[in-house]
Simulated assay, not measured.
Amino acid sequence: MSAEPEGERREQEQTDAETEAPATTASDVETPAIEDAPIGFDQLFEILKNERRRRVLGYLIESGEEVTLDELAEAIAARETGKDVRQITSQERKRVYVGLYQCHLPKMHDYGAISYNKPRGRIEPGEHTLLFERYLSVDEGPDDSAWTRYHSTLSLTATLLLVVPVLVGAVTSNAPLLIVAALLVGGLVGVSTLRFLR
């Protein structure tokens, strides 16, 4: 029998090793638990309590790659104003840029939410981005306002139904019924109006 050439044998061994090694995908990576992280709930929610910081995290998670501060400021300004990136004004972009540069990005970098190279103006997901991701709201944006409007409309309808007891109380001069119904109507109208206008 003829011996197998050395190069072919090494190639075969490498192919066998690659076949046996399990492939690791992004979905296989487990999200770290807060208990195992070097930051606590206070720091975690300190970052997440600000809407602009949540938008930064959401944008970086969506893109999954390094971005410039200019790109990030434009994207966040567009999300905040509800405009396309090409439609935002230089003033809107500058307002977001300054806030990110001076306040939000350094704080997020300190807690490991992002990796921020300030001299180069480059931002990418950080050491603990996955930890923050688990607490981000999945449905932000226009759907939230539609849901709020739905509940506000429902509250206004309920308010209208309570007007009937007020009218009945006024006609029959039943003071306690009139006072309770008026308080309920006033409360519902106030809450519904505030939620609807948000």
Rank of each mutant, 00 (worst) to 15 (best):
Q12V: 05
D70A: 14
G169V: 03
G169W: 05
K94V: 05
V180C: 01
E4T: 13
R54T: 10
E80H: 14
R134L: 04
E18S: 11
L131F: 06
K118A: 13
Y150K: 11
K94T: 08
P106M: 00
R195W: 01
L156T: 11
D28F: 00
L130Q: 15
G141M: 09
T148H: 09
T19C: 00
L60A: 08
V189G: 06
E140I: 10
T129F: 04
L72C: 08
T172M: 09
L183V: 15
I88Q: 09
K94H: 09
E11Q: 13
P176S: 03
L130V: 01
S173I: 01
E74Q: 15
R52Y: 06
Q87W: 05
T129Q: 07
V98T: 15
R198H: 14
A170Y: 10
T89H: 02
K107E: 12
L105D: 01
G82A: 07
L178I: 02
V189D: 03
L161N: 10
T24D: 04
L100H: 06
A21F: 05
Q102H: 14
E92K: 10
L197S: 13
G58M: 12
Y135K: 06
L100K: 05
K49M: 07
L194S: 09
L100W: 06
A23G: 08
R9Q: 14
W147Y: 11
R198Q: 12
V98M: 00
V67I: 12
R55Y: 13
R149V: 11
V138Q: 11
F196C: 00
E124F: 02
V163G: 05
L197H: 10
G112S: 04
L44C: 01
T81I: 03
L161C: 08
E66N: 04
S2Q: 07
A3H: 07
F41H: 15
Y97S: 02
F196I: 03
R86P: 00
R93V: 06
E18N: 11
L48I: 10
A73W: 06
L194F: 13
G121V: 00
G187R: 07
L188Y: 06
T157E: 01
L48P: 13
E30R: 14
A23E: 15
V163D: 04
A73R: 09
E71Y: 11
L194D: 13
L161S: 04
D70Y: 05
R120T: 04
R79G: 11
L131G: 10
M108R: 02
V191W: 09
L160S: 03
D143K: 15
E4F: 08
V98W: 00
L57F: 07
